[in-house]
């Protein structure tokens, strides 16, 4: 009976472009238990946002090819169509985006947007849906929620809009919440409030969450497990403590040591040289090899598999035993 809530096997996302197909997500495996928080960290172009959009099935179908196996609570997500797909989006799985100003509809009030979502996914009266909307705004701790129901998004501050967006995402009681850099556009003192709110709601409502961020500190605050993505592949995964306190993959090590957080002023930061590869021209074998200080010819021979390293940890590096 112990099936995970979400399981993705060999998930691959290809975009058809005039210059030929580009593989943005390249055969990743993900599993997520009920009530668990997975943090995905990576730089721009690593495929973290595309993964999220593939999970919610909101990538434009005419231009995208999603392959692999994706199951949520036993449901085959990739074969969903029509009504089932509409019920899945926002019902089973919902998403909080980075920029609440553009993700909310500017011509409807917050109350209307939340109650419409509730009515779309549950058979309730207009009045009950309004009551649910009020309850949601209270839940995300928006001050004077009753009067805020009648506000348009532009009448709210950035932090409040993001709270409203979280209320909207949670209104239909999803089993899985996808959060794509939800705090990146917020100010520092507001960011920590939203992180704490998400952590609390996640615990109270027991939903699983995937939290995408480029900020290692934010990932540390919220994740149970962490997956590190590079050029469309997962290069290292494990518990938050395993990955962040004792990174094994050279890219994770580089990413953590290149943050200014622990750097001593006056001494150079240990930056990773070069930049991430162009997805249209991927290097052979390990995608990180051209920037890796430890790369040998073996790294170019084949794409390294994720291998178990004790505990929850799995790392995709052929030289792991030699360099450890």
């Amino acid at each position: 009976m112990n099936t995970p809530l979400l399981s993705a096997k060999d998930l691959t996302v290809q975009f058809r472009t005039p210059k030929g197909p580009i593989t943005a997500v390249n055969g990743i495996d993900l599993t997520l238990e009920r009530g668990e928080v997975l943090g995905i960290i990576g730089e721009s172009g690593s495929g973290k946002s595309v993964t999220m959009r593939a999970l919610l099935r909101i990538l434009p179908e005419a231009k995208t090819e999603i392959a692999g196996d994706l199951k949520l609570d036993g449901k085959d997500v990739l074969s969903l169509k029509g009504h089932d797909l509409a019920a899945y989006r926002g019902g089973d799985v919902s998403m909080v985006f980075q920029e609440p100003a553009t993700a909310l509809d500017p011509v409807f009030t917050i109350g209307t947007q939340i109650s419409e979502t509730v009515r779309r996914h549950r058979k309730v009266s207009r009045k009950d849906a309004q009551a649910r909307a009020l309850e949601m705004l209270e839940l995300v701790r928006i001050p004077s929620p009753a009067s805020r129901l009648g506000n348009y998004p532009h009448e709210m501050s950035g932090g409040m809009r993001q709270r409203a967006m979280i209320a909207l995402a949670l209104a239909a009681g999803p089993k899985l919440l996808l959060a794509d850099e939800p705090t990146t556009a917020l100010d520092a003192t507001v960011q920590i409030q939203v992180i704490l709110l998400l952590r609390e709601l996640q615990r109270e409502m027991g939903m699983a969450t995937i939290f995408v961020t480029h900020d290692v500190g934010v990932a540390a605050e919220i994740s149970d497990r962490i997956a590190v993505m590079y050029a469309g592949r997962i290069v290292e995964t494990g518990t938050a403590a395993e990955v962040l306190k004792n990174p094994k993959h050279p890219y994770t090590q580089g990413l953590l040591s290149s943050t200014v957080q622990g750097a001593v002023p006056g001494t150079p930061i240990k930056a990773i040289p070069g930049m991430p590869p162009d997805l249209a021209q991927m290097p052979p074998g390990c995608a990180f090899a051209p920037r890796c200080p430890l790369a040998t010819s073996a790294c170019q021979a084949a794409v390294p598999d994720l291998r178990a390293q004790g505990g929850e940890r799995r790392v995709a590096c052929v030289r792991l035993e030699e360099i450890a």
């Binding site: 932090g159 520092a188 960011q191 992180i195 704490l196 500190g217 540390a220 605050e221």
Partner: peptide
């Protein structure tokens, strides 16, 4: 408040309470 709002890089020592509430 601003300094205390910085996310903790250590998953075993998470921030437990927001130093100030509301937006600027």
């Amino acid at each position: 408040a601003l300094l205390a709002s910085m996310p903790s890089p250590d998953p075993e020592q998470r921030t437990m309470a927001a130093p100030i509430t509301g937006d600027p």
